[in-house]
């Protein structure tokens, strides 16, 4: 069984670090949890099929994270996305739902609860050949 990869996109580096360490501890060696330095870097990893679950916090000040979710839906729809946000609003929730995000959590959430949702997301995640070619 190959190592599963969870990638985190969060503009708050401390929150990103806690998420990464916490999940790594809870999930032990089943998965590798990393923090992407930027949404663009995460996008490249997804294109390379190196991501099994993307955890993302869409910062309202920047549209990069939202654009990443849109791109994934269009070109890598099989990659599951978990929105873990500190900026929870009904509008964001609806927007993410419209974009096809299956998992949505609001901070501050306990790591144990996060762990449950992450495990569920990984179980439902399927490696398929649903890749859509990029347009040039």
């Amino acid at each position: 069984m190959s190592l599963r990869h969870i990638e985190i996109v969060d503009s708050d580096p401390t929150a990103a670090l806690v998420t990464q360490r916490g999940l790594q501890v809870l999930l032990d060696t089943e998965v590798e949890v990393t923090v992407a330095p930027s949404p663009d870097a995460a996008w490249l990893d997804c294109l390379k099929e190196e991501v099994d679950l993307l955890i993302i916090d869409p910062n309202p000040q920047s549209r990069a994270a939202t654009s990443l979710v849109k791109a994934l839906r269009a070109y890598r729809p099989h990659v599951p996305v978990l929105v873990l946000t500190a900026y929870d609003t009904p509008r964001l929730r609806a927007q993410m739902q419209t974009l096809g995000v299956q998992h949505y959590l609001a901070k501050p959430i306990d790591l144990l609860d996060l762990n449950e949702v992450v495990r569920t997301a990984l179980k439902t995640a399927t490696h398929t050949d649903m890749m859509v070619p990029l347009k040039h």
């Binding site: 708050d12 401390t14 929150a15 670090l17 806690v18 998420t19 360490r21 916490g22 501890v25 500190a86 900026y87 929870d88 609001a106 901070k107 501050p108 959430i109 306990d110 790591l111 144990l112």
Partner: peptide, 14 residues
């Protein structure tokens, strides 16, 4: 506050 609160609570957990 949510981000630092999330980080603090879960750091304590770790």
């Amino acid at each position: 506050i949510n981000n630092p609160l999330y980080a603090a609570r879960n750091s304590l957990y770790l």
